[in-house]
Design a protein around this nucleic acid. Structure first.
Lengths: 218, 218, 218, 218
DNA sequence: GATGAATGAGTATTCATTCAT
DNA sequence: TATGAATGAATACTCATTCAT
């Protein structure tokens, strides 16, 4: 058992070592121009070894996103769990967390986009796919909970919290989060339009607020 | 003379025919999984013919972005040129224009992202590259002018118009526009943070506006 | 008839125009890296036009060799026909002629080599092939006749004139003439060895001649 | 250490295996009509493997020349190193060596010619290029040393040894050696003419020697 | 587990040649 | 005749993946 566990931990360490190397290489060259050999070299391993830890190149790539989602969720849970904070302060803490995510990996945006490609998804194992979907959804809900709380307390204006979480995420990452994007690209454009319309409304209010009176007269 | 002109027009028609086919194939499969043969088939041409009109696969892909930027600029110029509209109405018209851009090609986002990869840029001819940079900058300035006008008229609150244009574009397309992104990725992350901080401030205001009093009390 | 003839002359002029262009391009880039389009551009014609005058790229290339062989034969006939010259003077005149051939086209060597490739020969029309073989043989015989005359007059040492012609040609062009090379490459190595053995003998004699006594003592 | 060395030897074996296959295929079809797949098949390897040992098709081809130059130099060093031989005997041994080189690879001539094409040279790595230049020069100097010795001993007539080496090589291979040819083609034709004039002089002497008196009277 | 040499299917690109105008 | 746009077969080269050691 102890041995089993130690082995498992060792295995996990290797996985992380590879992911870190992959992150570096993908950042520099983009997905399709990075070769498995590049990554192996960066990780100071042989190409064959990579396949002991990841089924294929797509899974390796997807694991980057998984990792950042895990990090994001830890940060979100921490914000949510802090009973001391008012909804407004939580929104601010959320913003802080997002900046840290960005520091952790400035390629978040591109990673998550690449992941959405239906061709990429085909090459992922069902487990990995399920895990990503799960974490995506979870992170969205965690964000949404922050807004929900604000709305419940009458502190935020009354909007659907999930949409707000999307907007927030969109502002941050320049990307509509995985779960939503998938819908957009694969199914229809309505969801995007709703979210964006709401975003623009908020944006417009922020933009004109101070001089609203003037605008109305015009 | 007339012949020269007709030929030129014929040539342009062919280019468009290829671009339309490429757009379709790239949308369906993504860049690296689309082959030149796929595109040729879609365009009902032979692979060799593609190379009479585009230097290589990267240039063909980049031309998609060029095309959408051209369309965007036409729309923006139309909004700007309409003297009838108040700054607020222009902001709304801008939003309309952006939705139309999205209808024109829902892949805008991915296209522009792909374009930012420095590995991709290496394969573009200097002219094409210059043209893209020029149009990117031009579109940003056109958006900025709309906000500038609002600020000058005391209708919008006082922020740097270029940053507002960035935010607007980011909200819409889920992407930080080419000119800015290049800065972010290649140089430093400060510019992004500034823009985002501003975005969050506007967002926060829009979010809490109605109940600001309550929040303050809390 | 007059019209027919004028047309034929016009046609020949075009052929020469193309050959001159081809010579230039082939000299600069070598055979396989020269494209028919390069040649067409150099000749200020369209690619299609080239095919009105030459069956294919190989025939165009072969025609270069044909042209130089024709030039060579004219010079050789002139030397042979001059009754004023002694065999020794004819040998000197032969040398002069060869230098002129070289000035006419410094690529002779490479042209004739390329021509020998059996893969190239496959693409030539039987007529062209026959013509080249004929001219090659003719030029060798013309050279041989000069040596024959010297031998008959007791002026040159007694060797087979054809072999002497080969050696002469080899020295000049750095190449064993078409007829011989073909034998060497396609059939066997004996002919080359014979020729070379004789060449080395002559060379050795010329090299040591002055001090032959010394050498013999050693 | 031992492992490192064994691997290196194994690697060299593979290189030779490929070179041998390439030699065969190139001999049969010529450079441009031989495909990498042909060569791979002949070597009983996959196309990809060829690229593990040679950067590209041109480098593989150039390596054939390298190999023969290496062989030639070994033979020349052996002749030069034999203190037993008189200059005249060394010249004869040189001739023997050249015949063996020819037996080793009857394509020498064509290989070295191909190598001279400036378009080919562009695709070679600087190291390989330097190595070829070095060996070319070295082999010429080794030949020259044989003639130098003969001249120094008063056995050979007094001419520039390098030019003699060129003539010798030209007779043998039907090609003016790389170093010289490069001068000829890229710079000017003077060097060739000098060499040839000297060759013809030697030729003429060998040709007429027996009957020189007769000729002079005529 | 780890290696890295070998694989070979996959693809961008070229270019001799054709043919409608 | 001349054109030159279009063709599409041909091929060098890449790289994810495997497997004997």
């Amino acid at each position: 058992m102890g041995i089993q566990e130690r082995k498992e931990r060792e295995r996990e360490r290797r996985r992380q070592q590879i992911i870190v190397a992959a992150k570096k290489v993908f950042s520099e060259k983009g997905f399709s121009r990075s070769t498995m050999e590049d990554i192996a070299k960066e990780a100071e391993l042989s190409p064959g070894t990579l396949y002991l830890y990841f089924k294929n190149k797509d899974e390796l790539y997807a694991s980057l996103s998984l990792r950042i989602l895990q990090y994001l969720i830890i940060r979100l849970e921490h914000v949510n769990g802090n009973e001391q904070l008012s909804p407004g302060q939580k929104a601010d803490a959320l913003q802080e967390a997002m900046f840290d995510v960005y520091d952790f990996d400035p390629q978040v945006i591109i990673n998550l986009f690449h992941l959405q490609s239906s061709e990429t998804l085909k090459n992922l194992s069902p487990q990995l796919l399920a895990e990503i979907e799960d974490l995506s959804r979870k992170s969205l809900r965690l964000m949404a909970r922050i807004f929900q709380e604000g709305i419940d307390n009458g502190v935020f204006i009354d909007r659907h919290p999930l949409a707000l979480a999307d907007i927030f995420w969109a502002m941050f990452s320049g990307v509509i989060l995985w779960e939503s994007s998938k819908k957009i690209i694969d199914e229809n454009k309505d969801y995007l339009k709703q979210t964006l319309t709401m975003a623009f409304e908020i944006f417009g209010r922020g933009l004109r607020e101070k001089n609203e009176g003037v605008e109305k007269k015009a």
